[in-house]
Every structure is written in C-alpha cells, then in structure tokens.
C-alpha cells in the first residue's frame, strides 16, 4: 500500500509539471496584450511598452515561466492586471464559495444516486426501475441553468423560502449554507442522474457474477448478498464518476454561479478572460488542474482500498 501511494505521488507531481508548462505556453500564444487592454485604445506605444516592462511581460520565456512557478510554490500568484490586488487574495475569497458548493452538490448527488441506483438495480425491469430510469433521463436532458431558474421561481419567488441569489458570507454558516442550497440542488440534479445510472448498471453487472451465486448457495438472502458482496464490487466505476464530477463541479459551476450571482471561481475566470487579466486566468486554471489531479490521486487510493487486487501484493 505505501508503495502505491508513493508511485501515485510521483505521477501526481509529473502531471502538475506537465500541466504548468501547457497552461503557460497556451496563455503565451493567446491573442490580446494585457498592457494594451489596460491602457485602452488611445495609449501610446511607449506607454504600453513601459507597462509591459512593469508587468514583467517582456523577459525571456524560460525566465518568466520559472518566476511564475516559483511564485506559485510560495503562494505568490502575482498581482491582477485589472484589480491591482494579489491574485491569491482574489482566489481565496472565491474558493470559499466554489469549494463548499462543489462538496455540497456532490454530497447531494451521491445521497440521491446511491439509493436510487441500488433500488433500480434490485427491482430490475419493474415499474420502479422504469420510472427511475425515465426520471434520470429527464434529469440528464434538462439544462441545469433552466432547472435553476425553475427552482428560483418556485422556492424564492412563490414560496419565499430561499433568497434568489447572492452570498451573505460565512459569518453565519447556516445562512451561507442556505444561500448555497438552491445552486447545489441545481448542480446535483444532472450529476445524480448520471451517477444513479452508473450505479445501476455496475450493480447489475456485479449481481450477475458467479460469486453472487456462490453467496446465495451459502444461504445468504438477496439483501445480505447485495450488502455484503455486490455493493463493494460495484463501487469502482461509481468512484471514477464521482471523481470526474467533483472536478467538473469545482470549475464548471460558472453558469449556475451567474444565475445565482455567486462570486465563485467560475465567474473569476470568466471575468479574467474578458478583461485579458491573464495572470488571474493562469493561476485559477492551474489551481483547478491541481484540484483535478489531487482528486484523481485520492480516487486511485480509494480504488486500492476497495479492491485488494489493486494493492500490488508484496508478500
């Protein structure tokens, strides 16, 4: 087990290095000069050049790359071109919305998907199964921003249970959670639909395995067979999807953040791109890549915990 963690750590670091190079190079070739953008159309070439030097944009490529990476390692993400404040501060403010929102949505999605998927698998081809499969089909087809607007119409405007948007801050955690509830539900619906379908098909495959028959031949009931033998074996594909979904929820919530006026990471990147604030874009993208790689790492470790065949036998 320790050797697996070590091996995965090495691949984690290599992935991060590769990702940093790609991100840096891609943003080098993106059209649009931040200095030009900041000074507006009427700026003189001299002024633009002076600003470029001030921003450290005209050094050699390699030097700028290493300056950036070393800064990242120290938590120094640079100064935003447009906000004129440290990028680290901008990110810190927003990650306290995006991260809890992603975890909240993922928790909801898992809590819905597991029982629903298991129920559908156990009652295969019954009316329950057909109903669940139909509902998840709808969940997949409905765009989440539209669903979010329906939620706002019902719970904020008609019932007045939740506010329609905005974020009050974490001074009152209950209030903050309440503000994140509708966005989390809107995000969780399609994710739960996918997860429930994966759970169902994975469990159905597992229930057809020979060792399930062996367990029944031992005298276990169908329920015992499900809990003790089938579920853990069915978990591997489900874990893969959960890992992918978390990465998506962290960065992909931008539309929902817009619907609910939440100042999250998605909105920060979006604003950074439109105002050519490339240093913000670069830093946030790097942070998201780090999150994705970290989640993948955790999922890999969980695989090994779930399935002994993936712990390379050392005895």
């Amino acid at each position: 087990m320790p050797s697996i963690i070590l091996g995965r750590l090495v691949s984690l670091i290599l992935s991060l290095i590769a990702a940093s190079i790609v991100i840096f190079l891609v943003l080098e070739v993106v059209p649009g000069d931040p200095a030009q953008f900041m000074l507006g159309l009427n700026a003189t070439p001299e002024a633009t050049a002076a600003l470029r030097t001030a921003l450290g944009l005209d050094g050699p490529l390699l030097e700028r790359y290493f300056t950036w990476v070393l800064g990242l390692l120290h938590g120094d993400f640079g100064i935003s071109y447009t906000y004129k404040v440290p990028v680290s501060g901008l990110i810190a403010d927003r990650i306290w919305i995006s991260l809890p929102l992603a975890i909240y949505a993922l928790a909801l999605s898992t809590l819905i998907a597991f029982p629903v998927g298991i129920l559908a698998a156990v009652r295969r081809n019954s009316a329950t199964d057909v109903g669940i499969m139909g509902a998840t089909q709808v969940g997949l087809a409905v765009p989440n921003f539209w669903f979010a607007m329906l939620l706002v119409l019902l719970f904020s405007i008609t019932l007045r249970w939740f506010s329609a948007g905005g974020f009050p801050g974490w001074q009152d955690p209950l209030l903050a959670l309440k503000a994140l509830t509708l966005p989390a539900v809107a995000l969780a619906l399609p994710q739960a639909s996918i997860l429930a379908r994966v759970m169902r098909s994975s469990l159905l495959d597992t229930l057809g395995e020979d060792y399930i028959r062996s367990a029944r031949a031992k005298g276990l009931s169908q329920g015992q067979t499900l809990w003790r033998h089938a579920l853990r074996n069915a978990l591997i594909p489900v874990l893969t999807i959960i890992g992918l979904q978390f990465s998506f929820l962290l960065a992909g919530a931008i539309i929902i953040e817009n619907v609910f006026f939440l100042p999250g990471l998605g909105r920060l990147v979006f604003q950074g791109i439109t105002s050519r604030d490339l240093i913000v874009v670069k830093s946030v993208v790097m942070l998201l890549v780090f999150a994705v790689i970290l989640v993948t790492f955790l999922v890999d470790i969980t695989y090994a915990l779930v399935d002994p065949r993936l712990r390379r036998a050392t005895r």
Partner: peptide, 22 residues
C-alpha cells in the same frame, strides 16, 4: 436459506470467479 449452505452445499465450475475478489 436454512437448507442452502446448511443441509446442502454447492460447488460450481469456475473457481476463478466463484469467490468474491474483495
């Protein structure tokens, strides 16, 4: 269920898949 595994035991063909891998 009391009979299966109690009064009667059963062994199947495929030993490679008849046991729970986890």
């Amino acid at each position: 269920r009391k009979i299966r595994g109690g009064t009667v035991g059963m062994v199947f063909q495929e030993p490679m898949t008849a046991l729970n891998p986890v």
